[in-house]
Design a protein around this nucleic acid. Structure first.
Ligand code: FES
Ligand code: FES
Lengths: 164, 164
DNA sequence: GGATTTGTTGACCAAAATAGTAAGGTATAG
DNA sequence: CTATACCTTACTATTTTGGTCAACAAATCC
């Protein structure tokens, strides 16, 4: 599993979502709010959320007042879940699990990469969104970001609807 | 720390070197032998070995009968050492340690990537070359490779010289 | 000494992966 | 009907990676 900007955006956006999903009485959090707070290109982030949704990590609502909410509790979503959703590929072997990277045979180090992939996956599975959200340093940054965004619109009426 | 073909080549070549450095009475193992056994482009591998050498992982000899040997014992060279030598960059933060990736401020998840980088580094530091070499599956592949290369030249006279 | 072998270096190139954009479509509130 | 906000596809630009080439330097062999 490789860490790239795509995966970092996904985790950052999900963290933002987790932090703000109880604002305004729990109405869905819109893409544009997240993108603005986290300085992520909105169009790009939109595609990442499509993946997160199709992997069952978030629910979405369309139309005015629409947006996203976590589909599961933050304690039940690991870093690995999020990165996998947008990055697919949990495997660090050259052969992508085909065991054929040297002229259709197993290369000298296949077993090593396979083993390491598993260990790295374990590390990323061991940390979940609630761990991130409750970290003191993370909260501190979030507060600064919220203060920064104070100029934008106030609370709106709360609505209940079914997700898409 | 990201796993890429460059790092995989480095580890594969080092493993091959560790496995063959006692062949022919301990004469240096040539680049072309390693490249051929492991199906790695020789010119490319040459540059990787230059990095491995400058990081003190191998010693080299030029001229006829020249080649490489491990500069330290296989138990004293970790996977992290080898990957770092060719890849530099042990850091998975977006800011590369600058703590400035959101408009010159710390982004929401900096502390997370920083922490994860360390954990992954620990995993890669925990396995060393001797672990790889002594793995049963690795030895099995090595034997097949050696049988494959049986057509090439036999043992030559042993020489002692100082490394480059 | 000269040819040959082997590693060393730097510049260069091609292909792949990644990050980002743009535009049209669909559902929903009001 | 219209504005909002998510959804999807296609495309483009940039960066990174993998790989080549040629000239070079050291050591050996004859
Ligand atoms: S990595 Fe799987 S065969 Fe080489
Ligand atoms: S990753 Fe370091 S500031 Fe964002």
């Amino acid at each position: 599993m490789r860490l790239t900007t795509k995966g970092r955006y996904a985790v950052t956006a999900m963290t933002d979502l987790a932090l703000h999903q109880h604002d305004n009485g729990g109405r869905p959090v819109s893409l544009s709010d997240i993108a603005e707070r986290q300085s992520i290109p909105a169009a790009y982030l939109g595609r990442l959320f499509a993946s997160l949704r199709s992997h069952g990590l978030v629910e979405s609502w369309r139309g005015p007042g629409g947006g996203y909410r976590l589909a599961r509790s933050a304690g039940d979503i690991s870093i690995a879940d999020m990165i996998e959703a947008v990055d697919e590929r949990t495997d660090n072997t050259r052969c992508r699990g085909q065991v054929n990277c040297q002229d259709n045979h197993k290369c000298l180090t296949h077993v090593l990469w396979s083993d390491l992939s598993q260990r790295i996956q374990d590390v990323l599975s061991d940390i979940c969104l609630s761990d991130v959200v409750s970290d003191a340093q993370v909260r501190e940054v979030a507060e600064r970001q919220d203060a920064m965004a104070k100029n934008r619109g106030g609370a709106a009426t709360v609505q209940w609807r079914r997700p898409c």
